[in-house]
Amino acid sequence: MYAEITQFIKMLDTLSRLLDKAQRHAEENGFEAEVLLNARLAPDMLPLSSQVQMVCGTAMLASSVLTGKSAPVSDNAESTVQDLKALIEKTITYVSSMKESDFLGWEDRIVAPPGWSGAFLGKDYFHQHAVPNFYFHMVTAYAILRHEGVRIGKMDYIGKLPFLI
C-alpha cells in the first residue's frame, strides 16, 4: 500500500513538469499560460486548474484518511501556473511526510472521508475511489494540455522510469 501512495508523488512531479511545458508553450506562442488553466475538454467538465486541484486533493485526502492524520487545507483559489505548482509541491511535501508505519491496518480501518455520507473499509476507499479518482483527474489534465496544443506525449505522462541499467 505504501508503495502505491508513493506513486502519487511520482505522478505529482510529472504533473508539475507538464505545467512547465504548458508555461513554455504559452510563452513560445505569445499568450498567457493562465489561458490554459481555464481550458476544458467538454463544456460540462472542470477546467485544467480544477483538474490539478483534484489530483492534489485526492492524494492528500487518501493519505489523511488512511493514516488518520490531518491533511493541509487548500482553498482551491490557485489562479496561476505558479500557484498550481506550489499546490503540487505542498501536496508532495505532505504525502512524502508519511511513513510506511503510518498506514498500518489501513486495509480494515473504517474510514469516513470528510463531507461524504458514508464509510468504507480503507482498502475499498483506496482501490475503488482514491486511485481511480487520482488518475482520472491526472489523465484529464494531460488530455487538456494535449488538446490545447502543448507538445507532450505518452512518456511525458508516464514520467521517469527506474531503469536498473
Rank of each mutant, 00 (worst) to 15 (best):
residue 88 I to M: 05
residue 52 V to M: 05
residue 86 A to W: 08
residue 62 A to L: 02
residue 43 P to W: 05
residue 57 G to M: 13
residue 66 L to Y: 04
residue 43 P to E: 10
residue 94 Y to T: 04
residue 84 L to E: 02
residue 83 D to I: 09
residue 66 L to K: 01
residue 34 E to G: 00
residue 56 C to V: 07
residue 90 K to P: 07
residue 48 L to F: 10
residue 57 G to S: 12
residue 39 A to G: 12
residue 36 L to R: 04
residue 44 D to H: 08
residue 78 E to D: 03
residue 66 L to T: 08
residue 67 T to L: 02
residue 62 A to Y: 02
residue 41 L to P: 03
residue 40 R to A: 15
residue 59 A to R: 09
residue 87 L to V: 02
residue 90 K to I: 02
residue 88 I to A: 04
residue 44 D to I: 06
residue 78 E to Q: 10
residue 52 V to D: 02
residue 71 A to N: 02
residue 47 P to L: 11
residue 87 L to H: 00
residue 33 A to D: 15
residue 62 A to T: 09
residue 45 M to F: 13
residue 77 A to T: 11
residue 65 V to S: 06
residue 90 K to L: 06
residue 57 G to C: 12
residue 70 S to K: 04
residue 47 P to M: 13
residue 60 M to E: 06
residue 85 K to F: 10
residue 54 M to A: 15
residue 72 P to Y: 12
residue 72 P to D: 12
residue 81 V to Q: 07
residue 84 L to P: 02
residue 71 A to W: 10
residue 86 A to T: 09
residue 76 N to W: 03
residue 95 V to W: 05
residue 34 E to K: 00
residue 85 K to S: 00
residue 91 T to Q: 01
residue 37 L to M: 11
residue 55 V to L: 00
residue 35 V to I: 15
residue 52 V to A: 03
residue 71 A to K: 15
residue 64 S to L: 05
residue 62 A to Q: 09
residue 57 G to E: 14
residue 36 L to Y: 03
residue 79 S to G: 10
residue 32 E to A: 04
residue 81 V to Y: 06
residue 58 T to H: 11
residue 43 P to R: 03
residue 95 V to D: 01
residue 85 K to Q: 11
residue 61 L to S: 07
residue 46 L to T: 11
residue 71 A to V: 11
residue 79 S to E: 05
residue 84 L to T: 00
residue 90 K to N: 11
residue 73 V to Q: 13
residue 75 D to S: 08
